[in-house]
């Protein structure tokens, strides 16, 4: 996922628009859109993603259980989300490996 935000650029000496590249919830790279200076977040996105995925899988049953008990209406959207999960995970992987 890519997000734009204004941050202070050391190279430009002023606040400029930056593009932040997230892989899952890990910050991978930030790039100044004026001078293209790059700031690196997680240097090993695949390792970071694998670690994050492990955490997501381990906590999944608890998160689903909590959602079912606190937001019963959300159960209706559970099946479409489960069905689209492989596609979403695949798109995250493609983004990392790109």
């Amino acid at each position: 996922m890519k997000v734009k935000s204004s941050l202070m650029c050391q190279n430009c000496g002023r606040q400029t628009s930056h593009e932040l590249h997230y892989v899952g919830s890990s910050l991978h790279e930030i790039r100044c859109l004026q001078c293209s200076t790059e700031t690196w977040g997680h240097h090993h996105p695949v390792a970071g993603y694998v670690g994050e995925m492990r955490g997501r899988i381990v906590t999944k049953p608890w998160r689903v259980l909590r959602e079912m008990t606190t937001e019963p209406a959300a159960i209706r959207s559970l099946l479409p989300r489960v069905a689209s999960k492989p596609v979403r995970v695949a798109s995250e992987l493609i983004e990392i490996l790109r």
Partner: peptide, 11 residues
Amino acid sequence: ITFPEDVVLAA
């Protein structure tokens, strides 16, 4: 959080 490095450090 002011500079890009701050976002990385905060993360």
